[in-house]
Design a protein around this nucleic acid. Structure first.
Lengths: 107, 107
DNA sequence: GCTTCATTTTAACAACTGTGCAAATATGAT
DNA sequence: ATCATATTTGCACAGTTGTTAAAATGAAGC
């Protein structure tokens, strides 16, 4: 096997693509937000649950989710009185686990 | 096919891993730095070349490379009077191209 | 339908962090 | 020792984050 998937080369990415990608990385490039994603990788959860799990205020969690949602990393849906947040797609997790493995490689 | 590679699950990542990974994402989560990586994906280059390509001062480029080097995204080596920078490994490019594809997917 | 209440979001502000620029300093080839 | 190349420092500026308080959203009961 050569390449898992064939992507357009980085060198030919448009300025807009570079920008969007940078914003995506930036959104997930923060320990508190990454922790939220780790929680969500186990299944969707509402804001209060996440707040409780992180020992943070609901407001703080809501703002972190806002940043993630702005880059389409997570999606939300109402369930009765609660709003459930979930990972936008499985690829996000793969992306992070990939980076996790590489970050580990270099200590 | 199920999984391209099998990684340890995100949910079981240690705080230290989360931190390192966040720092990695943060380092590449900036358009100017991402552009440098795009240039380097075509082959190594010295600081002056990168500065010229980006229409920036050598000092500015040097600082951007410093951030990338701190997270082991790039490596440097001296070649005569010049210091060549190169991507630390091919995986970085894959990681970015992956993100690029996903960022494109969601507009 | 209107009110009430739980849940979440937003706004405003202060504290912190990162970035680029200019100038000074370091590095090492010749 | 000199010079080209690169790094570092100090500073000003812009952007981000958390906190508190106020506002919005919508479900459920009356």
């Amino acid at each position: 096997m050569k390449q898992p998937h064939s992507h357009p080369p980085l060198s030919s990415a448009s300025p807009a693509s570079i920008d969007r990608t940078a914003r995506l990385f930036r959104a997930i490039g923060d320990p508190p937000r990454l922790r939220l994603l780790a929680l969500l990788s186990q299944g969707e959860a509402c804001v209060s649950q996440l707040a409780q799990a992180e020992h943070e205020s609901i407001s703080t969690i809501s703002q972190r989710l806002r940043v993630l949602r702005a880059e389409n990393v997570v999606v939300r849906s109402r369930h009765g009185k609660h709003i459930h947040y979930a990972l936008a797609d499985r690829h996000i997790v793969e992306l992070i686990e990939n980076a996790l493995a590489h970050a580990a490689e270099r200590q």
